[in-house]
Amino acid sequence: MPLLKLFGSDFAPALEEPLQEVSLEDWCDNPQAHADATALVIENDIGVEHFAEDLSSFRIIILNFPTFKDGRAYSQARLLRERFGYTGEIRARGDVLRDQALFMVRCGFDAFEFADEDAAAATAALAEFSFAYQPAADRAEPVWRRRLDRPAAA
């Protein structure tokens, strides 16, 4: 299970530092007891908006894809980034494949517990599309803005 992190537009293997993980429920029940936790694990049926205020103390938030078809964590990640300004690492866990990596990055993920992707293949997958039509958490310039910016005569 290689852990890849995003550096600019490239993936690179990251050393698996041992994490002190805590689930959102456990942490809510008794924050003091988990004061040394370094990563918060949020299941995908939990409304992150209810807790977001307090999450900034975590360096890493782990969101879950029980199967890659279950896309709730895409919305969770965008809410964390765009609404609550969370700037720590958002890590994708579970059924994480390179075919979805670009979508995940666009929604704010920057670390990935890939099933079996190498960094080169995952990086190549990110480059498969040159533009995006819509704005998202990655702040990619949407196509409409590029259109507005292009020289008038072109």
């Binding site: 078809k69 896309g71 666009r106 929604c107 995006a132 819509q134």
Partner: peptide, 13 residues
């Protein structure tokens, strides 16, 4: 059409 094409958040509804 443009907004929904490859929408990163709404591809696994």
């Amino acid at each position: 059409r443009q907004w929904s094409t490859f929408h990163p958040e709404f591809t696994f509804l």
